[in-house]
Design a protein around this nucleic acid. Sequence first.
DNA 1: CTGAGGTAACTTACCTCGGGGTCACTTACG
DNA 2: CGTAAGTGACCCCGAGGTAAGTTACCTCAG
Lengths: 202, 202
Amino acid sequence: MTGSRAVGTKGVPRGERESQILVAGTEEFGRAGYAGASMVEIARRVGVTKPLLYQYFGSKEGLYLACLHRAGDRLTGGVAETMAAGGDPERMPLAVLAAIFATFDHDRYAWKLLRDPTVPATGDIAAAAGDYRERLDAFALVGAGQLLGSRGLSDALDVEALAHVWTGVVDSLISWWIDRPEETAAAMTDRCARVMAGLFGW
Amino acid sequence: MTGSRAVGTKGVPRGERESQILVAGTEEFGRAGYAGASMVEIARRVGVTKPLLYQYFGSKEGLYLACLHRAGDRLTGGVAETMAAGGDPERMPLAVLAAIFATFDHDRYAWKLLRDPTVPATGDIAAAAGDYRERLDAFALVGAGQLLGSRGLSDALDVEALAHVWTGVVDSLISWWIDRPEETAAAMTDRCARVMAGLFGW
DNA sequence: CTGAGGTAACTTACCTCGGGGTCACTTACG
DNA sequence: CGTAAGTGACCCCGAGGTAAGTTACCTCAG
């Protein structure tokens, strides 16, 4: 604990409060989307009032950006690490899934922020989200290319489409997971391994 | 043409205008989500002002419901027809995709309405969307059960998860398609057939 | 043929309310 | 008594929603 708490202070120290707000914000933004989420609702979740959110994060956009960066950095970092480890192209998808499940077990809405369709089309949020998405898509593109290449398929649009579908699969799995809080990360990984083995005939 | 146009009339007849509004509404709701879409923007697309939308559809919720029913009825109908035709469980997914692509070639946003995460959690819209989703999920569940069953897998949650992922795959394909307007329905079907054949090793 | 009247289509101008955003103030601890 | 944490009460704007009026076309009496 670096909780120095400085001099005159009341209530919860700033850093801790910010973390609480980021968690609540990620859940609410993930659930309702940027457009549908409300600042007062996020404040209510934390047990605090709206002005505190503005004092700490400046604006709705600022809070969203903070949530987005927290989620995006962890996600791209985790995936990059897994991909860098290399291995059989057939087994990469499962390895990536396992990493994502393990990383976001207690923060399942984080993934949703990168793919929120209700953010404004222009501005800082769109730029940041687009950047993270691009990085993840690059990984997906490599994986899809290797997989299809090993099957003798090399059409660029085929690869693109498969990569896009792959990110959609991850999205679906996380949505399903969110609706089943009792399902652990390990159970999810096992389930995916079993079903994929069945489908692809391993 | 049944265009009787009745007596005193100016501008575009009601039925025709309603169709235009449904098309524009579907696109805008599909693009921005229920929460993010604006009535004045939909009106602008049609080349009309907001009160006309309210005269014809009563409210934002009413317009969304009208768009939703148009999309949902066509979708569930088309899928039901394809599934009823029966056939090899391995080839059902592709047949369903082909039907969806053919049906929604000129109305690609329609699918999005059934899975809009920004609609209010309760009320008529939630009920109607939930109903359509349930019907589609039932089809997906049957297909997933047959597919996994033929591989010796029968865990109920595995089937559920696979069905959910399948609808997510459709969602992803349609998103990708929306971003590539020049891609025809036939080309999409071919592409999916090719990639699936490659992945599943046919 | 014509113009009076009726009706469908459509608009201008407005109301209302909820959510983003701000300011001045209070509370509690060092 | 100074400072960090936090709040009550307010402003403002945009989006949903509405009331009343206007325009163009059709019909039919004379």
